[in-house]
Design a protein around this nucleic acid. Sequence first.
RNA 1: GCCGAUGUGGCGGAAUUGGCAGACGCACAUGACUCAAAAUCAUGCGGGAAACCAUGUGGGUUCGAGUCCCACCAUCGGUACCA
Length: 826
Amino acid sequence: MAYNFKEVEEKWQKKWEDEGTFNAKDDYTLPKWFGLIEFPYPSGQGLHVGHPRSYTALDIIARKKRMQGYNVLYPIGFDAFGLPAENYAIKNHIHPKITTEQNVNHFRQQLKSLGFSFDWSREINTTDPNYYKWTQWIFIQLYKKGLAYKATMPINFCTGCKVGLANEEVVNGVCERCGSPVVQKEKSQWMLKITEYAQRLIDDLDDIDFLDKIKAQQKNWIGRSEGAEVNFKIKGTEDNLLIYTTRPDTIFGATYMVVAPEHPLIEKYKDKIENLEEVNKYKQKAATKSDFERSELNKEKTGVEIKGLKAINPVSNEEIPIWISDYVLITYGTGAIMAVPAHDERDFEFAKKFNLPIKQVIKEDINDNKERTSQEKLEIEFNALFDNPDGIEKPYTDIENGISINSGFLDGLKTKDAIKKIIDYIEENKLGERKVNYKLRDWVFSRQRYWGEPIPMIYCEDCGWVPVPEEELPLKLPDIEDYEPGENGESPLAKQTEWIKTKCPHCGKEARRETDTMPQWAGSSWYYLRYMDPHNDKEFASKEALEYWSPVDWYNGGMEHTTLHLLYSRFWHKFLYDIGKVPTKEPYQKRTSHGMILGGNGEKMSKSKGNVINPDDIVKEFGADSFRVYEMFMGPFDQTAPWSMESIRGCSKFLDRVWSMQEILVDGDTYSKEFESMMHKAIKKVTNDVEEMKFNTCVSTFMTMVNEFTKAKKINRAEYKTFLQLLNPFAPHMTEEIWSRIGEKTEIAKTLWPSYDETKTIDDEIEIPVQVNGKLKATVKVAKDVEQEEIDKIVDENEVIAKAIEGKTVVKRIYVKGKIYNIVIK
RNA sequence: GCCGAUGUGGCGGAAUUGGCAGACGCACAUGACUCAAAAUCAUGCGGGAAACCAUGUGGGUUCGAGUCCCACCAUCGGUACCA
């Protein structure tokens, strides 16, 4: 009676589908649990073995939650707008709608073959007009609140995709998607003001349960820094040069200023600049460089002094030169800095190269609490004696242990206090103000592409930009045949003259439609909300559904989406919260991440390396259950793991042994004495480990149990039933089949999750390791609640121990109840 | 450089969070079954003859350290003239 996985898996999958076994209930009185995985982009390659790692993990949790009595929402959909479909269309002249549909069908069939307990009745697709109607609607709300605006600005332009990219999509100066170089290009783009939410995106992380590394990465990306903006007078004018610094305490050490090449100062004072030609030449050179070239490999500092212009240090009144250099970025802060070479590495490098003065204004505090050897103290004293900044070998940048010197009224203050005092001084004297800056940039939201949501905006010569009236949504993407980007990187839609022509909703005059489309991140920024009420045609979801299902209880996905999708959707959600459309501040209560699956050779799977594993092949050869169990067993869920064909065979073998246990089944309504504590321990372990995503140890627990039962050549009914219930979320098909074969009427998925009794997880008789001076010498068997006196006697009777302590003095005996016994001898 | 991980047998990895290091699986070896092979089952499997030695390296704390502390090294991921 060998196990026929093909037959069994098809049988149960059909039943689940016909009966909608896993559909969420609309009963809002039940306790709910909303588990979410990142919906896939339906690529032509089909499902990758990486997808099921995440899907199986949450499927296991979802199945367990159902058995624990929750009303579970575990939905699926397709994020189907995007470049690959469009590029394929350009090449093969097949409409992306067609390929997308084919791919979705393929994906759906693949996902079903893996037995995921998705609620298929709620399947969504971002390219469905009934879906993107609401994506467009959200955009219009953003526009109405001033959070969407059109701006002409240098954008990242991918030379391959011929499309503008968000900062997040540029990796090492090349396009994240196609690898082509990215250049700067001036283009009028729709922008979303994510920067307005920067602080809240940081602060609210405190209230949610994201992995620490995800929080850290988001905070890094947002890049908050505290400091001050300070005005430096430009000599001989009424004008000021406004700079941003995080170290205003070093202001007495500012020996020169630097402005970015694009800084307006140069244009404004071109008449005063003595070496304008030289300066302009430098500007031009900087302009032709891409961001990548500018930051490439810590290149040498370059720059030119702006002769004829001088700045006045507002606290010391010293006159200092102004330089132009591309190490200062126009996009951050004010595009200008005060340079303090003694206490900033970049300024130091620049000053060294151009022989600019270096003035030390911070020294290391040797009276702090830091432990130092006398040698180190001497060195510090010695260095201090030589107050010879030119001899400084490297700038002192430590913010914790510094003390101000040569800084007038700041002298003697610790860096932190000095910062406070100088900012107060700056503000009192109206020289500038406290200022927080973020690295986060606004989100470039326009794509000059076809296969995306049309941006629902109309341009009228008289009224400017006007949104498409909401009752006209969805603004459908027209069917076209020519997907090639237009002239100058215009959207293919720019060629659809009929579609473009429209009337201004405001004044009725002839007007034209926006031809750019939204980025792929748009549809995925709110999709979890649609799952709550996917067929609603009045709202994106009803208030009741939102109240009941929000927030997503557990969201699992890849680390690569931490600074893109995850940040964008938190931003949209917060906006929807602000306009009263969603009930929670945050979309996702908990976020975890899965590790990547590598090829058998330990390298990233890729076609060119020929190490790609196709899930279909695995399912065909071993079945979905083996595939699922293996993916959970292969290693810690959050870490990368190489694929191994040998190991999956081992998992398949394990399942065969589970199947074979039917042959050693004996009667019994309660656990046998022999296995009682093992059963309770196992229930406890699996119940807890699933919650902590330690799936690999769950599987090894199952294997150990099978070993025990097989060795005993028997398993009673009560034990088998519990075992099958625990295993069910991992191997749903086989466990259902055995369940019905042993005569159970209700499906296992509809049974109650087993419970355990804490007192029964402890054995009556335990083995205590006995150490001498911390080294293991023997083990003794004792009753679980044995007292010290008693165990002392038992240990003394042990021959090995007696030999080990023979002739030595026993200093101490340590017994940690139930754990260990240690004798300290001299 | 900065931020975040990780480092344990031939391999993937366990270790109740300070208490028997190597669970479980793979690979391998031997045996049973078989004419034979595969499958299956059984046994063994860090090093060392042993005392002992072993969790990236070197120190430390502790009765006791893979786990805690200090200083390094290596690998991976993120990020980078962000003032």
